[in-house]
């Protein structure tokens, strides 16, 4: 705490050192260059793109204000379904991912089948495209003859997402578990704590905290992949945009959908990056 106060330039404002004056100059110059080049690029985009011969057509098909205004509220409503699917999938993914990670960490020989299962599981579900898993599980399992409501595409689509993303989360958690220094296990063991207590109270709380940024990135990807559930029926934002597209023969609804996704995913990604930088600073 005290260290920062001493280092902060504000504390020495009246008499800046030579280095501080020099660094302020460099900073001002690089900011001017960055602002200038950004402005130049933007200007080029704004001026040059409309000069392209097909611009009028593209504008009408992709950036149509009327279509945007007509479809945006419907898209926003459909996005609530994406948010809902995300909201109930995310905790399930975390729990299953945690179980798989613990399976893979199992050390006793009696638990070898668990470890093998964990390894196979992560290999398979990280190796198959999400959309295939959604198709196979979303149509395949209800096709076995389950009664309603247990054959709902919402249930089995969620299962497909959970199975796939849990494999990724499990790997992230496992890397977190392995990143905890073995001296922590030794300290817990020396106090007489058993393997499961050590995992639960000593290793996992640290490991989970350490991989929060990596998991946040996964969950940003999940929020986007929720749209894949539309392939098996649910009318979420991507499907709703597709309906508008075919009714109006216009791609603007897709642009609207993209904007809605960005409004959610950009802040989440920025936050994850911020956490990651913070952690990197804390460790150095």
């Amino acid at each position: 705490m005290t260290q920062t106060e001493i280092d902060s330039p504000d504390a020495k404002r009246p008499g800046l050192t030579r280095r501080q004056i020099y660094e302020a100059q460099v900073r001002r110059r690089s900011m001017a260059i960055a602002a200038g080049s950004t402005a130049a690029v933007l200007l080029a985009l704004v001026v040059l793109i409309p000069l392209a011969p097909g611009w009028e057509g593209v504008k009408k098909s992709f950036f149509n204000a009327d279509v945007f205004a007509r479809t945006f509220p419907g898209l926003l409503e459909a996005f609530l379904l994406d948010v809902a699917i995300f909201a109930w999938s995310a905790p399930l993914i975390f729990l299953l991912g945690l179980c798989i990670a613990l399976c893979r960490d199992a050390r006793s020989p009696a638990l070898y089948p668990l470890r093998l299962f964990g390894t196979l599981y992560t290999d398979i579900f990280r190796g198959v495209p999400v959309i295939l898993v959604i198709y196979l599980i979303g149509f395949g399992i209800p096709g076995l003859g389950l009664p309603r409501p247990w054959n709902s595409p919402y249930i089995w689509g969620t299962v497909a997402l959970v199975l796939t993303y849990a494999a990724y989360v499990a790997e992230v958690l496992r890397s977190g578990i392995e990143s905890i220094h073995h001296s922590q296990r030794a300290a817990a063991a020396s106090l007489g704590l058993g393997h499961s207590d050590t995992m639960r109270f000593v290793i996992l709380p640290q490991a989970i905290r350490r991989v929060v940024p990596a998991n946040m990135n996964l969950f940003v990807a999940l929020q986007k992949d929720v749209a894949l559930l539309s392939f098996i029926g649910p009318v979420e934002i991507f499907r709703q945009a597709g309906v508008y597209k075919s009714l109006l023969a216009n791609f603007t609804p897709y642009v609207g959908a993209a904007l809605i996704f960005l409004a959610v995913t950009v802040p989440a990604t920025r936050y994850a990056d911020y956490l990651m930088n913070k952690q990197a600073r804390a460790r150095s």
């Binding site: 149509f139 209800p142 389950l146 054959n151 098996i232 029926g233």
Partner: peptide, 11 residues
């Protein structure tokens, strides 16, 4: 896919 959903009794 519509047919598949009908077969799976989802619609």
């Amino acid at each position: 896919d519509v047919v598949e959903a009908m077969k799976a009794n989802q619609i």
